[in-house]
Write a protein that binds this DNA or RNA. Structure first.
Lengths: 339, 339
DNA sequence: AGGTCGGCCGGAAACGTTTCCGGCCAGAGC
DNA sequence: GCTCTGGCCGGAAACGTTTCCGGCCGACCT
């Protein structure tokens, strides 16, 4: 394994100079730099990261924390994978790697998270799908580690977050239903403790108002983002004296649940009731009718988180404004907009 | 940040001894060990991993390589996430962390993969969803890095792999259909270049034989694991002079495609044709009828990969026999076995 | 012509561990 | 009483970088 001293010997300069050449510092002549770089290429030199991290006190890795239990049991992130892809891609472009910090039992998480960050001198940490109030999380933020959350409004004074433009997305769904002639538009929303749920509801509300509609209070019901709750909420809506003709669900699973409820009530979408979801999970194209939904740009979410982190890193840890990534209404079969 | 020398000073022994105590080596008296450990706990000491890795030449991380493009474009791993969870969990138990090695463009992958492994002194690498013949992969294996594949028959002389017991799983599906009275059982399988596809087909064949059935050659058709191919294959099967009464699809997406073909042909599952899938993806419970399928134990797959890696690490790199994890038939609505 | 400045470079000290090598001391064996 | 052994320990050299500090030398200014 060729090291920096080997390069120094073969080029006839000192290790210090080789290091400077490799790191593209100013204090080295163009000629020397060229020779060093050439030889490095030729010998297939690649720097030893642990050594580099040791002296720099900052590694080339950023950590990723997401709560396993939270995710699989609750399926709260049906598209976690796409986030990974976005993160991975953007990270690679800036020459970083991603470390998944793991913990066996969640009670010890508090230690594991902050220790891992310290032990490995992580450049920063991205987190998602975790409880923002968990002691492990607050401890990590307090420890001075650079953090950014996805769909997670972390403490605003020291961290930032990125999320979809939920308001606009919800508005576009409502608008679409309106354009199709619907006036009695209901919404199935999520727990008000979750940022996306509150924002999507707000978007629904403001767009209804903008269109001159005042939603029937009974037409705003609360689910928990899971299939069953969508089913139950829709069933309740359909049993109303004045049932809605269209339903905007704040999540695709709930939307699919609603579709099931429709079918079981002998109704059909989109003929009898139109349904729009939010997220664009894979199943949206697998079910019949296919689901019209507000797609989140998952890759962009991941990429945004990384960019926020990197630029904060460059700025010496300055906090930034939360980032919102645009959504896109993808119309399919469940609301009769077009095929 | 308290270091090992601080501990040495405060306990009155040398750094060498502290290191020995911390690493549970024999050459230190019980009394000294106790004192060191106690103080370490009290001061919240945690070792600097880069420094440790530097001298040990082996980090506490294992790398994970999976090909992004491959995965999202092809959806070949609809359950990748659950693999992550299994890997993460098992890794945590052995005190390791996971590093996602990323590459911006796949043409440069060859370099990035083996460099990352070398640069970070990775303890080993797990890979999945990659092309086993890709130069990047073979180069990595050749570089002497300890590798284990998931659903990936890597070069057997230096690596091992873990996969589901596809034969038995396929057999259980066929057997289930047989028990329900079906005799004309067709299969939609995948590309013969993929290990799981070949094994599932083999399982189908041998179980049919065991049951005394000789499958109509027309009843064995090849898809590519995606929805559309399942649809097409099923349509072809239904158009046969002697159409099957049951279909075993080697993947859930294809099974769902088959279900759609049935519906479009005016047939209903399970009344007219029974369908069984393989994988148990999330959508299996979201569609109607719900899909009977052979579930893979994804967490166990991930865990198995890690265990294989760890034990090879302990054994000094000994190759092991491939690991096969059991599948489980979960019967739902699409074949009329029970509700 | 003397002084200053800036570009380029080398030596050496860090960074926080682990491990080799050797030393001390108590007890055992003769 | 002397050597040998084995348990415990300390000093110091690594591991591969980066960076501080200072030195040299040519060019430029006055």
């Amino acid at each position: 394994m060729v090291d920096i001293r080997e390069l120094a010997r073969r080029t006839g300069v000192s290790p210090a100079t080789v290091s400077r050449a490799l790191n593209d510092r100013a204090e080295v002549s163009p000629e020397t730099r060229r020779r060093v770089l050439e030889l490095a290429e030729e010998l297939g030199y690649s720097p030893n990261q642990p050594a580099r991290t040791l002296v720099r006190r900052r590694s080339d890795m950023v950590g990723l924390i997401w709560d396993t239990g939270y995710t699989t049991q609750n399926q709260r992130h049906p598209f976690l994978l796409d986030l990974f892809v976005g993160i991975k891609q953007t990270l690679a472009e800036s020459g970083h790697h991603l470390m998944l910090v793991s913990t066996a039992d969640t009670t010890a998480a508090v230690d594991v998270y902050v220790r891992a960050a310290r032990q490995h001198s992580l450049a920063g940490v991205i987190m998602m799908g975790v409880d923002e109030a968990h002691p492990a999380i607050t401890a990590l933020v307090d420890s001075g580690t650079l953090c950014v959350g996805i769909d997670l409004p972390l403490r605003r004074d020291r961290t930032t977050y990125v999320t979809s433009d939920n308001r606009t997305g919800a508005a576009s769904a409502v608008r679409h239903l309106f354009d199709l002639g619907h006036r009695a538009i209901a919404t199935i929303t999520g727990p008000m403790s979750m940022l996306p749920a509150t924002e999507r509801l707000a978007g629904y509300r403001s767009e209804m108002a903008r269109l001159g509609l005042t939603p029937d209070p009974d037409h705003i019901v609360h689910g928990d983002f899971f299939l069953a709750s969508g089913y139950d909420c829709a069933a309740r809506l359909l049993a109303l004296p004045k049932p809605p003709t269209a339903i905007f669900a704040a999540g695709d699973e709930m939307a699919i649940g609603a579709l099931h409820a429709l079918a079981d009530a002998g109704l059909r979408a989109p003929r009898d009731v139109a349904v729009v979801g939010f997220d664009d999970i894979e199943a949206a194209t697998l079910i019949r009718p296919t689901l019209t939904t507000v797609a989140q740009d998952r890759a962009a979410l991941g990429a945004g988180a990384v960019q926020a982190l990197i630029s904060a890193l460059d700025d010496g840890g300055a906090v930034q404004a939360p980032l919102r990534v645009a959504t896109r209404l993808v119309v399919r079969g469940s609301c009769g907009g077009s095929p």
